[in-house]
Amino acid sequence: MTEKSSGLTRRRMVKGLGATLGAAAFGAALSPLFRSSGMNAAELMQRHYKELTPADKQAVIERLQAEAKEAFGVSISIQDPRPTPQTKFVYAINLSVCNGSGKCVEACHKENNHDRETKQSYIRVLEMPKGTMDMEQGNTTYNHTVPSPDKFYMPVQCQQCDEPPCVDVCPVQATWKEKDGIVVVDYNWCIGCRYCMAACPYHARRFNWKKPYLPAEEINPNQGYLSNRVRPQGVVEKCHFCLHRTREGRLPACLEACPTGARVFGNILDPKSNIRWVLENKRVYVLKEELGTKPSFFYFFDK
């Protein structure tokens, strides 16, 4: 062996050693990834909601129920109610009556199995000075006795737009508008890019920055696949008009909780419905109409 080639060999050995060390360090750096349990092949390979056969869906639901049983020790039931034909849900809020008590916020929090630590909810209530519709003047953090005499209160949640910008921007079709007007998210398909949160003009979408924390005794066991089942970490969620209730004919949780009866909900396709009467007889308006999102959510004043 010449000197040159032995130098080369040594160099090659050093390089090999470096590469091995590098690979080991890379593996060590990634190790936190493998700490997280809960990852399983069935979940990883699960298809999009619309591609699931009834049998697939059954299997997925059973898996989720079993996981919940294991995680919380409570039996939950996950249903997947589908839209009723000839039904389109519309919501309206009477701002003359709303007193900003935030009971709807709390009811949403409980009904939808939100994270207890952040007190998450799909609804935010703005306190606004009378005489303006400029949200810039609003404030959500008020904590004084309500209603303040010179203020009105405006709860904002998903407006279930007919032209939803959030649905357009989703790169993987993980969110879509259903036949009854409800915009839903497939929590098992969302990749968590949060483009929809940037696109929504109503701050309606929430992200699971961590795994939601819920004490077992506070879990609402009556769950919907596309609505209030406990969400996984890292996905986007939003108000779904309590579809696990409303598709069974029941009223949304926020409406039942409203102490002032400011909320009106119903099927706009039914000419005799409450909501239809409100739209026909009150001067209603929508938020940010100029954006062309065509909300299914209306506001009105009595006086």
Binding site: D168, V169, P171, V172, Q173, C193, V236
Partner: peptide, 27 residues
């Protein structure tokens, strides 16, 4: 790095995922 669910990155691959093209500018 920005994805909440990097394990679902494959949902974006045309063919095996669901690629919302041409609607989504991200695609």
């Amino acid at each position: 790095a920005d994805l909440g669910r990097p394990d679902r990155f494959w949902h974006m691959f045309p063919g095996i995922g669901r690629f919302n093209f041409p609607m989504s500018m991200l695609t």
